[in-house]
Write a protein that binds this DNA or RNA. Structure first.
Lengths: 340, 340
DNA sequence: GTGAAAGCGCTAACAG
DNA sequence: CTGTTAGCGCTTTCAC
């Protein structure tokens, strides 16, 4: 039952006052070498570690950063979390994680709680929209870096891959293969990334002189089961598409499952391409043609932005920064020429 | 720049002392209804939220629990984390997450930091072994619940699925299909689960009168790339196995990839079965025969154990409890009769 | 260079 | 029932 030693124990053992201990242990060089030595020795001997709770109370905020994602069990966010955690730990911050279930209400509740915890800052994949959403985020008075989705009216740092470009790359690829009836299973229409990915799709088609068939652009809400249903619907139409572009990884898997269950063969009957990495793409047959993001870089950049912003704690109003990464095309066997 | 209101602001506005505010807001019923009403109204008006940092300092520990897993980006642990987070939040605890990279040294370092944070308790997938590992864990003076792997010499609550049974179920299944040359790609030999899964394998073979060929039991370290290599080695032997049992999900995918790259067909040339759920099993061809764990139940049980233990903070020495869940067999198309 | 003292915001005896 | 008081452990002026 060894109670953790406090600064007073160290002070007593070293024969100095608590303030001297604090000074000596802190980077400050305002103490004589010999006292500093005694203090360090005493601290060592006792195995003293400053109580972070007390430090936090004094400082006004905890050395923690929060990460709120839509779904922790999606490996994309798992990797993001992992990257953030690593970077944060290097900087001496712990990471508090929360799952918002991609639900703005839940997200705001969690955000509120974290802000009340006097957490240092938050990496957020925002799922809100509407009028006052951005205002409420700002009202938290906590540094926030947004990732993946952008908050329309908000002034936040933002880190993501170029979704418009990603969609354009895949669309271009499909066009080059000869496809003309292209479908997109899009994300949640209220989210920035979904809008961008649709834009890239339409833009590229039009640039190629192909008028997009709006009935082939359907909402999948970034959810695998919804994409499954939408694919079922698309593929049982008489004028079914010859290629499908899924706006994220989960939806690609949902779509692929639907295609296989209907007895179609991919890519013989229909080509499939996806935005975002699909885990274990190596063992999924066909291997997916996709556009992948550098998640580690994303995570690092987001964390760095946040740490910087936490430095000056809203002092000087640095303008919100954007970092848009260029995604990379990975060819798989899920895309080929359209059927005769 | 509205500084967060403190208890003193509420006290001032309600015309009472801070302790009365504390009492009124706390569940205690030791204040008169009218004062309580005034206090609540004042708190409401100011949007007062007690500062958790101060509460924690007073209490001696934070309302947080830590979760340390070997790899956050593995969906198995992602789901575990998600379950724990949900349960913890219900109980008013936030979750601090850390990734140990399945490395005992890193794990102990993180553990140390979390304990120093005066965190309430920890859900741990332990990766250590050896002499003093358990001792160091106990030395942390922090409630710990172990999940998945067991700490040999430790007195900790433990929650997991029955790994021996899981291996036995799959082995039995393969035997029934007619296989006699069975290989196992096992986990990290120093981890409890790996030992258990090997035991179930050997036991079942022997019970069926088949002497296990020890050269077919190879270590995959629970890592996909290692399993890939081991499968390459196994499948290029003249006396290659007709069935492979992978001791976890990642290794199953690694094995499957190797099988496919060698030009073998699964299950025609070799059957493959796995312990643990494989994400998106629905779109992986062949679909895997596997034994799955109820991760949500695991997560909930672990969190409940931890919360209970945190209640009496080491006071009365409750004996360490075990909860061993029964896994479930899911038949896929990756197993069939051995080739002629 | 070092120590005394105040205080971060809250809770919990202990008086009244 | 309510207020006074004393800390939780640390940092940080401000004197000496």
């Amino acid at each position: 039952m060894t109670a953790m030693p406090t600064i007073r124990d160290v002070a007593r053992l070293a024969g100095v006052s608590t303030s001297t201990v604090s000074l000596a242990l802190g980077s400050g060089n305002r103490v004589s070498p010999e006292t500093a030595g005694r203090v360090w020795a005493a601290a060592e001997q006792l195995g003293y570690q400053p109580n972070p709770l007390a430090q936090s109370l004094k400082r006004g905020h905890a050395r923690m950063i929060g990460v709120i994602v839509g779904d922790i069990s999606n490996p994309f966010f798992g990797r993001l979390l992992k990257g953030v955690e690593r970077r944060a730990l290097e900087a001496g911050f712990h990471v508090v994680v929360s799952d918002s279930d991609a639900n703005a209400t839940r997200e705001l509740a969690v955000l509120q709680k974290l802000a009340a915890q006097r957490i240092g800052g938050i990496v957020l994949t925002p799922h809100g929209g509407g009028e006052d959403y951005a205002a409420r985020l700002h009202g938290l008075q906590t540094p926030i870096v947004t990732v993946d989705h952008r908050v329309p009216g908000g002034r936040f740092d933002y880190v993501a891959s170029d979704g418009c470009l990603a969609a354009a790359m895949l669309t271009e690829h499909l066009l080059n293969l000869g496809h003309r009836r292209l479908a997109q299973i899009a994300g949640r229409p209220d989210l920035w990334t979904a809008v961008e990915r649709k834009r890239g799709f339409r833009m590229t088609l039009q640039a190629a002189g192909v008028e997009p068939d709006e009935s082939l652009i359907v909402d999948g809400n970034y959810v695998d089961s919804v994409a499954y249903e939408q694919t079922m619907r698309l593929m049982t139409r008489p004028d079914r598409p010859t290629a499908i572009l899924a706006a994220n990884n989960m939806m690609a898997l949902g779509a692929l499952q639907a295609i296989q269950e209907l007895g179609f063969s991919c890519p013989r009957d229909v080509s499939l391409a996806a935005i975002d990495d699909v885990p274990w793409s190596a063992v999924i047959r066909p291997t997916l043609t996709m556009v992948v993001q550098d998640v580690d870089r994303l995570a690092r950049a987001a964390t760095d932005f946040l740490l910087e912003r936490m430095e000056d704690r809203g002092r000087q109003e640095v303008a919100p920064r954007d970092l848009i990464l260029i995604p990379r095309l990975v060819l798989g066997t899920s895309t080929s020429q359209p059927p005769r």
